Amino acid sequence: MRIMIWGSGALGLLWARRLHNLGADPVLITRTGRQRDRIREEGLIVTDDRGDVHRCSVPVFTPDDRLPRADWVWVMVKQTALDQVREQLNRACGPDSEVWLWQNGWHPQWPFTEGTWYWWNTVTTEGALRESENRVRHTGVGSTWVGSLLSPTGGPELKRLPGLDRWVFPDPHIRDRIWTKLAINCVINPLTAVWGVKNGQLLHCKEFPALAKGLLREAVEAARLQEVCLSFDTLWEQVQAVCRRTALNRSSMLQDVESGKKTEVDFINGAIVRTGNKAGIDFALNREMVERVRDVEGTKGK
């Protein structure tokens, strides 16, 4: 089956090689012609979690090229680019295509309903670092869950690609899993971005415990407004565990700040704020994080 990976960041490159090994027909979509040409010339180079290096070749295009039709389209761009990709999906999707959304945070228009294809949402704990336009390092083995925000049908028919169920699991409660990850991200991402520290360094910041717990309490209340029940105590343990497990990692929000890019704060802390506003509740700490991250956006990497 043909799986189109729209977005060639770290996870996109990692999964292209994995799908290639499973015998699928992966196709990569890059944002730039420069990245497309480099992958075409040099291949895709992946360093696995044991340090072994692998090279493979996959078809690669930009959105301006003539695109093949795909059975599954995995949209692996950041939330900031999602709306633009949505407008172009009909160029790759046939009437029976299925679209998987791999974004962090919560888009204000989810669940999407446009098009004749079926929409799936995914949550992943895989870790990867893109080292160059065609090189990626697998930094953390994780799992991926997929389900529908439109109906509790579990997940797509994974057996269509034998072996995929080693890494991907259907989840009829994907909304709960999305909000769990959002709550964790609403602490780690903005604080690393504003303070300019790696994940593990958060645990040594004097302000961290009180501020993190305050952000989490607001996230738990926002989730409740969405009919999602989260445990504050469990989330606090998970935040600390993620900081320890990924101690040397720079969060995606910190990387965006350092490179002068627009961050996803509007879809993470901003999602908490919007949820509260609809109910007449001011989630002040998350609102403050949105403002503080916006203050540092564009101040570096220029």
Rank of each mutant, 00 (worst) to 15 (best):
R245V: 08
R224K: 14
R224Y: 02
A241K: 07
W145H: 15
G200V: 13
F208G: 10
K213D: 15
D165Q: 04
G147V: 07
P172A: 07
G140K: 14
L191Q: 07
F208D: 10
M253N: 01
P170A: 10
L216P: 04
V136F: 14
I174W: 11
G140N: 11
E227Y: 07
F232M: 04
R177M: 12
I188F: 12
R175I: 00
A247H: 00
N189Y: 00
L182A: 07
S252P: 01
G142M: 04
L150Q: 10
A193F: 14
N185V: 07
W167L: 01
L158P: 01
N189S: 09
S251T: 03
A210L: 14
Q226N: 15
A212G: 12
C186P: 01
L216H: 01
S151C: 09
T139R: 06
T139S: 15
P162A: 08
Q240F: 02
L202A: 09
T139K: 00
L235F: 06
G155R: 00
G163Q: 03
G154V: 07
I188P: 03
M253S: 05
P170F: 01
A241Y: 05
A210W: 09
R135A: 12
K206D: 15
F169S: 11
D171P: 07
R177V: 11
L211T: 10
K198C: 09
L203P: 06
N189Q: 09
L129I: 08
R160D: 06
L191R: 00
S252M: 06
W145Y: 15
V187C: 11
W145N: 08
C229M: 09
Q201L: 14
T125F: 03
A247V: 03
D165K: 02
I184M: 12
T125R: 03
L203G: 00
R224E: 13
V242S: 04
P170I: 05
C205P: 00
N199C: 12
K213T: 11
G214D: 05
L216Y: 03
S151Y: 01
G154P: 06
F169Q: 13
E157Y: 12
V257Y: 02
N249L: 08
E157N: 09
G127E: 13
E133P: 00
G142C: 02
W145S: 06
R166N: 10
W236R: 12
G163M: 01
A193C: 00
F208R: 04
G140F: 15
T234H: 09
R245C: 05
V228Y: 03
E126D: 12
N249I: 10
N185H: 04
T180Q: 12
V136H: 08
H204M: 14
L254T: 06
T139M: 13
A212S: 14
A193T: 13
S148C: 01
L216G: 09
D176T: 07
V228Q: 01
A219N: 11
L248F: 12
R135C: 15
R177Y: 13
A223Q: 00
L164D: 02
V257K: 00
L230Q: 00
N199Y: 10
V197E: 14
S143F: 08
A241W: 04
F208W: 10
E157T: 14
L202E: 04
G163L: 03
V168Q: 01
A212T: 08
